[in-house]
Simulated assay, not measured.
Amino acid sequence: MMQQIYPVTAHPYAYELNKDFHFAAAHYIPSDQAGKCRYVHGHTYFANVTVAGDALDESGFLVNFADLKRLIHDRFDHTTLNDDEVFDDVDPHRFPTTEATARIIAELVQAHLDTLPQHPRCIQVYLRETPSSYVVYRPRQADAGAQR
């Protein structure tokens, strides 16, 4: 079990839910500037997704933990990230870097949250690629408000 302290982001919501999970995946960064990372290699990624909101659903959930696991772990575990349709070998914003992967996780989670009547928001994704390297992605509040 991961027991980690994550960076905290201030928000105005009554509820905050955090889901930890990990997935093993290979990737490569299609750029000559990526050095050794140009070549296929793998990581065990550790992720934390933070969802916040003011209302609970008919089951008393802000969002079901199992849904978050299905969205991310079940999609990416034991895959090559470059093969997934959300990544691209042409657009650098869609290369499977840790930064872009954290943002894409937030986008996938938010797309699911947008279908829920209680309107929760994905406010942070923490993604650790190696024991010494991680990224924190926080969607801009202006973007979150525009998506409502």
Score class of each variant (00 low, 15 high):
Asp84Thr: 03
Asp57Cys: 12
Asn64Ala: 12
Arg75Pro: 04
Leu81Trp: 03
Val90Asp: 06
His119Glu: 14
His78Gln: 10
Ser59Trp: 12
Ala55Thr: 15
Ala111Glu: 15
Leu68Asp: 01
Thr79Tyr: 02
Asp84Gln: 07
Arg94Cys: 05
Thr101Glu: 02
Gly60Gln: 09
Lys69Ser: 10
Leu62Ile: 00
Glu107His: 12
Ser59Asp: 13
Leu108Gly: 07
Pro92Met: 07
Asp91His: 06
Thr115Ser: 15
Leu113Met: 11
Thr115Arg: 11
Asn82Glu: 04
Leu56Ser: 02
Leu56Phe: 05
Lys69Asp: 12
Ser59Leu: 15
Phe61Tyr: 15
Thr101Arg: 00
Gly53Arg: 04
Arg94His: 11
Ala106Met: 10
His73Asp: 08
Arg103Gly: 09
Val49Gln: 05
Ile105Lys: 00
Ala111His: 14
Val51Trp: 03
His112Pro: 10
Leu68Pro: 00
Leu56Ala: 08
Asp77Ile: 01
His93Pro: 04
Thr101Tyr: 01
Ile104Lys: 13
Asp84Arg: 04
Val49Pro: 01
Ala102Gly: 01
Pro96Trp: 07
Ala102Thr: 07
Asp88Lys: 00
Asp84Phe: 07
Gln110Ala: 13
Gln110Asn: 11
Thr50Val: 15
Val63Cys: 11
Ala106Gly: 12
Arg94Trp: 06
His112Asp: 13
Asp54Gln: 10
His112Val: 10
Gln118Trp: 06
Arg103Lys: 15
Ala66Glu: 12
Lys69Trp: 07
Val86Thr: 02
Val109Gln: 03
Leu113Ser: 05
Thr50Trp: 02
Leu68Tyr: 01
Leu108Ile: 15
Val49Asp: 03
Val109Arg: 01
Arg70His: 12
Ala100Leu: 11
Thr97Gln: 04
Arg103Glu: 14
Thr97Lys: 02
Asp57Tyr: 03
Asp91Lys: 05
Ile104Tyr: 13
Val51Gln: 02
His119Gly: 12
His119Ala: 15
His78Gly: 07
Pro96Met: 05
Phe87Trp: 01
